[in-house]
Design a protein around this nucleic acid. Structure first.
Lengths: 112, 112
DNA sequence: TTATAATATTCCTTGACGAGAATATTCCTT
DNA sequence: AAGGAATATTCTCGTCAAGGAATATTATAA
């Protein structure tokens, strides 16, 4: 359900409090649905639903262990986010490329 | 509208195609509303609305230049995402901590 | 095989969000 | 001051996602 490169579904999956909490929880290791629901004060159906969203977006993978389903974080989406973020790193260099912006705005003003 | 630390509003602001496109556009430098709308094939009102969302979440800041409003990417949210992502880096080390998981699952099985 | 634990799924209702169209606002220009 | 350009705001409508409650599914254990 995921190739490489940042997908918007990754972001929208994480852009919900409960799912974000689940992800933070799973940082420390795999957990079953029941454990997740317990620790986050969720009802089991809601936990399952959120886990499905996370699973569909490739953030999480499931392993069947008897009655339980053990959910684990996948690393790929986070690596993809990381790579994507690299294209924004130059911003930290606080405008050493001011010339570019200056020229750009000149163009805008000359447009009409 | 933003302190430090990853905020979920950052993610939900980015989790929309048009806003993501705007952000990608602004990577190359500040732009006015009209420019953004033109290049992305958006109508001006929609562009303004999306820019408001981005602005409210602190992803973007605005500078008034005569009739125009020039929107610029802010670096803080991306730095925050970056820091947040660091807590997931250990995943890349593909399970050298398997012992931890093993013990954890043992505990789960002994629970009932 | 039946009862039970763990999890998934469905149905329903409600609230949020995005697009479209129209209008309001602000500022420049003449 | 008036007209026009650039941008923001409002309203409505349709869609979609989330929570709640009930139920279905699957697998274990007795």
């Amino acid at each position: 359900m995921k190739n490489s490169g940042m997908d918007i579904t990754t972001l929208s999956a994480l852009a919900e409090t409960n799912r974000m909490n689940i992800v933070q929880l799973l940082r420390d290791g795999p957990l079953s649905v029941g454990e997740i629901a317990d620790r986050l004060g969720l009802r089991q159906p809601q936990a399952s639903k959120h886990l499905k969203v996370l699973s569909d977006s490739g953030i999480v993978e499931v392993r069947i262990d008897a009655n339980r389903r053990i959910y684990t974080l996948r690393s790929e989406p986070f690596q993809a986010m990381d790579i994507w973020l690299q294209s924004f790193r130059h911003m930290t260099e606080e405008r050493l490329d001011n010339l570019d912006h200056y020229l750009r705005e000149l163009q805008n003003k000359e447009k009409p």
